[in-house]
Design a protein around this nucleic acid. Structure first.
Length: 477
RNA sequence: GGCGGCAUAGCCAAGUGGUAAGGCAGAGCUCUGCAAAAGCUCCAUUCCCCAGUUCGAAUCUGGGUGCCGCCUCCA
């Protein structure tokens, strides 16, 4: 089966065919760092992390680029408020952002290009656009003339007339068309500025993504991502700039956009103020739960942020984790003779699970559906291996191992397995085993007080004990 | 005003023509020193409403209602 993706450009699902067989080039719009990022900003990186892992799993060689827009009106404004250098401020918050998404299990991009480090490339691009007649200079500002680019509007599905009709913002009189946008802005006093053929200034929004994606991925790269709010004008403008400048089209083969996180029924956004920062969410629910919650919904559907949703996600994840830990513990059992006919059934189920999981991911990266296949495997494995009649036969243990391997492998694609906390590593396996034996001795003597004390002590150390017909089972929380 | 999206159980969420996955919550039961984990049973005759196409529709078409997003910084 081929991978299918919903392409915003065509508004339909298409077979995904990379420009170069076996290789996938991806660019995702990052953030404008001037403050702590909110959980909505974490959705694209988490979604794309799953996509990357899945593509790699399917054998593709993936190049993944995510930018930082570190020069921007908001950063400059914030810098003024804090009396700090805007670039330094952006540097600091981009670092914080990387820590945040790193905590969510997002693997580092191959590169994190910054606007401030690509001024020459941007100037060169603007220069070409002016020379080719796609842009014009007015008093040190350079604007892109959208009427010179007939394909303008193809991504967002708007015609120039429609946009003109809807335009209610104050328009810079110097623009030829109200929707023309700035490629280069002349410097005002106290702003960071670079020399250019049009005088000192700085890049406009939009141009940096065209310049940096072209630099690192080349024209016609495979996937470009971001939130749906970037479709217009940002991505529309990126296309115009890149295709006008290079004469190459399409600039991007597939555009994928993720929906928003809502809070109180509205889009979570800094301007509305209804935000929860990534840090707050991690603090309250843990990073792994936050990630698990994010992938529980298909990326093109909105997610509602709330206590009930996050708590449900925590319980769901715990179910998967507990199963995996219990089965792993089972593997430490001494094998017994005999044949377990159910082992074959379970082994086959792992194969089905894998197929279903892959099919779900191939269908526009449907992580929610993929997760469903995992739950089904868990239910069947629990029913069999946690039954009081279960005996650890050789064939049975082999099947248990195949379930564990499958969970590891598929869960790994979604990045749901987080390493155990350092706290639960305080005791070694041998020490735990020692305490378990002490407790068993106490239980034999019906010394429940001692037995429970040991269990509580282990619990405090992050070790959960469970008494089963086959003996004591323990796992790290 | 223009463009686009969504509407499935108490909550979350799959499902784009073949008779409603899954998770959470809830009720009951089994197991059990207690606990925990787990399992079993129950929990949408129905998918916002109306009309149509079809042997058959949550899925397609038309109309309506509601919510949301973009058009201005925004993931």
């Amino acid at each position: 089966m081929a991978i299918r993706v919903y392409n915003t450009l065509t508004r339909q699902k298409e077979d995904f065919v990379p420009a170069e067989p076996g290789k996938v080039r991806i660019y995702v719009c990052g953030v404008t760092p001037y403050n702590y990022a909110h959980i909505g900003n974490a959705r694209p990186p988490v979604v794309w992390d799953c996509i990357r892992r899945f593509l790699a799993y399917r054998g593709y060689e993936v190049t993944f680029i995510q930018n930082f827009t570190d020069i921007d009106d908001k950063i400059i404004q914030r810098g003024h408020e804090l009396q700090r250098d805007p670039l330094e401020l952006a540097r600091e918050y981009s670092q914080i952002y990387l820590e945040d998404i790193g905590a969510l299990g997002v693997r580092p991009a191959d590169r994190y290009p910054r606007v401030s480090e690509h001024i020459p490339e941007i100037i060169a691009m603007v220069k070409t656009l002016v020379e080719k007649g796609y842009a014009y200079v007015v008093d040190g500002d350079v604007f892109f003339a959208i009427e010179s680019f007939p394909a303008y509007g193809k991504l967002s599905g708007r015609s120039l007339d429609e946009m003109q009709a809807g335009s209610r913002v104050e328009v810079d009189e110097r623009k030829r068309h109200p929707m023309d946008f700035a490629l280069w802005k002349s410097a005002k006093a106290g702003e960071p500025a670079w020399d250019s053929p049009w005088g000192p200034g700085r890049p406009g929004w939009h141009i940096e993504c065209s310049a940096m994606s072209l630099k690192y991925l080349g024209c016609g790269f495979d996937l470009h991502g971001g939130g749906t709010d970037l479709i217009f004008p940002h991505h529309e403008n990126e296309i115009a700039q890149a295709e006008a400048c290079t004469g190459c089209a399409p600039f991007v083969r597939y555009w994928l956009h993720s929906a928003f996180i809502t809070m109180g029924g509205n889009k979570m956004s800094k301007s509305l103020g209804n935000i929860a920062t990534i840090r707050e969410v991690i603090e309250k629910y843990s990073a792994k739960v936050a990630r698990f919650w994010l992938i529980g919904t298909h990326y093109r559907n909105p997610i509602s942020f709330g206590d009930e949703e996050l708590t449900a996600a925590a319980k769901g994840l715990e179910r998967l984790e507990t199963c995996r830990a219990n089965l792993r513990h089972l593997l430490t059992a001494e094998p017994v003779d005999g044949d377990d006919p159910q082992a074959r059934v379970i082994a086959n189920l792992t194969v089905d699970t894998k197929e279903n999981f892959i099919a779900a991911m191939e269908d526009d990266f449907n992580t929610a559906l993929a997760l469903g296949s995992l739950y089904e495997l868990v239910r069947e494995a629990n029913r069999w291996a946690l039954d009081r009649e279960f005996r650890p036969t050789v064939s049975g243990l082999r099947a248990v191992e195949s379930v564990v391997t499958t969970l590891d492998e598929l869960g790994g694609i979604l990045g749901i397995w987080f390493e155990d906390d350092a706290g639960s590593q305080a005791l070694s396996d041998a020490e735990i085993q020692q305490l378990v034996e002490e407790r068993q001795a106490a239980r034999k003597n019906k010394d429940w007080q001692t037995a429970d004390a040991i269990r509580d002590r282990l619990k405090a150390a992050g070790i959960v004990l469970e008494d089963t017909p086959q003996g004591v089972r323990w796992r790290r929380e």
